Computed example of a mutant assay.
Amino acid sequence: MVDDVQIVHYDSNTRTAVPKQDWMKKVIDDDPEYFKRSTNIFMGQEQTFKDNIEVLKQRFNQTGGVHIYQVMYGCEWDDEKNEVNGYRQYGYDGEDFISLDLKTETWIAPKQQAFITKQKWDNNKARTAYLKDYHTRICPKWLKKYVNYGRRSLMRKDLPSVSLLQKTPSSPVTCHATGFYPDRVDLFWRKDGEELHEDVDKGEILPNHDGTFQMSVDLNISSIAPEDWKKYDCVFQMSDVKDDIITKLDKSVIRTNWVPPSGFPAGAVIGVVVGLLLLLLCIAGLFMWRKKTNGFSRANISESADSNSDSSQSQLSGKTGGGE
């Protein structure tokens, strides 16, 4: 991922690293062995992940069930301050397991079950020195290369379309922004020019299928008098973009699927009548069939279902050898 955009993909079904952005093809032009080399690294990591799942199940005295082992590592580069920060952390079943402190060059183990791994990795000074070099020198070098390749795409500014949505007249009004890029944005309601923190519910920034993002923030209007609606507006702000997108709280622009009730519709009455007639016909036909065949016979049915349901990794166990 670069700036929350996926650039390379690998999974255990394809067993091949593939580019996910058009501009990544430039990498192949300059380095034809890039994806072959990446595939070999990922295949090795895949086996390491499987081995580590078994190690962690033993550490936590687990014999079955579905479990998740995660590794997240990378670097952040601030091109304005020219600062670089690296990180490497491991998780198990959604919780922190162990992480690297690059400043002290030691491992932090918040779980008792990670202490064996901490001791092993703290004693492996050569590996820790390599990881520090990777996160502070090698990783930023590649990050800068990726940014250079995808500059036109990664450095673009896509402004969103902003809409006001509402389920019913008494529901909260949702300010929804979609199609923006990058995700360094803010979306909020304000009253008389002041940002609101009460009676609002801000959602997370979510990805769209096309690589852009979307975000919503709800405003509870139950205590807002109709004459005060004009005091409220929704504001979309994007980093490094001077002008905000401001949308006034106005009933005339709110989009909704709600249809006011207007008595029991004639169409529904006709539908019920037709349904009853069909039901009577079915009952009559069923009665005649039962009479002709002298009762039901149990069906003989057999059912079946198919159930398909970087190369610095090392063994989590205290044992020596390959893997993580």
Rank of each mutant, 00 (worst) to 15 (best):
D78K: 00
F60L: 10
D201F: 07
I53M: 13
D79K: 12
S304E: 11
S216T: 12
N308E: 12
S222P: 00
M72S: 14
T174H: 12
G271V: 04
S297N: 13
N61A: 13
W121C: 02
K50S: 10
G211K: 00
R151I: 03
G94I: 05
G263L: 09
T178L: 05
N61R: 14
G267T: 13
N61M: 10
M43G: 08
K202W: 00
R88W: 09
I138N: 02
D96L: 08
S252Y: 05
D4I: 00
E80S: 05
D233M: 10
L277R: 01
S171F: 11
C234Q: 00
L280C: 14
V274T: 09
E324V: 11
Y181Q: 14
S38N: 07
M24W: 09
M288K: 13
D93E: 08
N308Y: 06
P32Y: 07
G295V: 02
R37H: 08
P182Y: 08
G86K: 01
K20W: 15
R59W: 07
K191S: 15
W142E: 01
N308S: 13
T293I: 06
Q113C: 04
I254V: 15
V241F: 03
S171W: 13
I246R: 12
A17F: 12
A299K: 13
F115I: 13
S317Q: 05
